[in-house]
């Protein structure tokens, strides 16, 4: 077990956002955190790497309590892909190199450059390495953000709506990439998602949040139409198409 969240609660300006949240993620598992807008998915993600301090509960990454670690120590184990990343005048290579920051004290070493170079190749970004990221498309920029998180060499990868601003092809390509990285490198990953169908297709496990609590959690094949209807307040059907469950809203 890489990530273990126990009894976590969070409040914003005194009013509780969620409470009693418990789940765990094993190596080689991708967990999708699902639920309606404003239920606290992003906040939950930020509590895991201590960007927000939870009001209660404990987060363990590799059995270490993250609230006792410095931001830098956390960043060595937890990679984070924010919902939005800004595009400044950096080359792709330098933008990804930034992911080595938690491991580097003062000067970038040869090893860091080699890791970045290998990651760019693996993510098919190599040909763009000297392009400035402010000239990239949304899909390419998102890949850079994922690459940056990967060169942190994390045990746990957090992705906040990794596909929200992407077209269909880029959505699939990013999620395939994430899934491949999780499988190949045996790391754990947690992503928040709006799109149920892509989540159903790529994640191993799900966690539905509803009204500040975990409504249901389990393996993807355990998702039912009733569950989805209940969480989103909308009648749906669940069909299997080409071996993948697909959610269809009913009229």
């Amino acid at each position: 077990m890489i990530l273990n969240v126990r009894d976590m609660g969070f409040a914003y300006n005194g009013s509780p956002v969620f409470q009693d949240v418990e789940f765990s993620v094993d190596p080689g598992e991708l967990l999708a955190v699902l639920g309606p807008n404003g239920v606290g998915k992003t906040t939950l993600l930020k509590c895991i790497n201590a960007i927000h301090a939870p009001r209660s509960g404990t987060v363990y990454v590799d059995q270490r309590d993250v609230s006792r670690l410095s931001p830098r120590e956390i960043a060595r184990d937890v990679g984070y892909v924010a919902q939005r990343s800004e595009a400044a005048r950096f080359t792709v290579f330098d933008a990804v190199l930034m992911g080595r920051k938690p491991h580097v004290r003062w000067r970038v070493g040869e090893e860091d450059l080699r890791i970045v170079s290998a990651a760019l190749k693996r993510l098919d970004l190599d040909r763009l390495r000297l392009r400035h990221i402010d000239t990239l498309s949304g899909g390419e920029l998102q890949k850079v953000a994922v690459a940056r998180a990967l060169v942190q060499e994390p045990r746990l990868l957090l992705l906040d709506e990794p596909t929200s601003s992407l077209d269909l092809k880029n959505q699939i390509s990013i999620l395939r990439l994430v899934r491949r990285v999780v499988d190949e490198h045996d790391i754990a990953a947690v992503m928040t998602m709006h799109d149920l169908n892509t989540a159903l297709r790529f994640a191993h496990k799900f966690l539905f949040l509803k009204q500040g609590r975990v409504f249901a959690a389990g393996h993807m094949h355990e998702v039912t139409a009733d569950m989805v209807s209940e969480v989103y307040g909308l009648p749906v059907q669940l069909r299997i198409i080409d071996g993948h469950p697909v959610v269809l809203p009913c009229h």
Binding site: N49, Y80, V81, Q83, E86, G99, K101
Partner: peptide
């Protein structure tokens, strides 16, 4: 210098990289 680079990538990204 590197911390300012991280901020250029966005506050959230910078926090994720361990920058205060």
């Amino acid at each position: 210098g590197w911390n300012y680079n991280a901020i250029d990538a966005g506050d959230e990204t910078a926090r994720g990289l361990g920058v205060r």
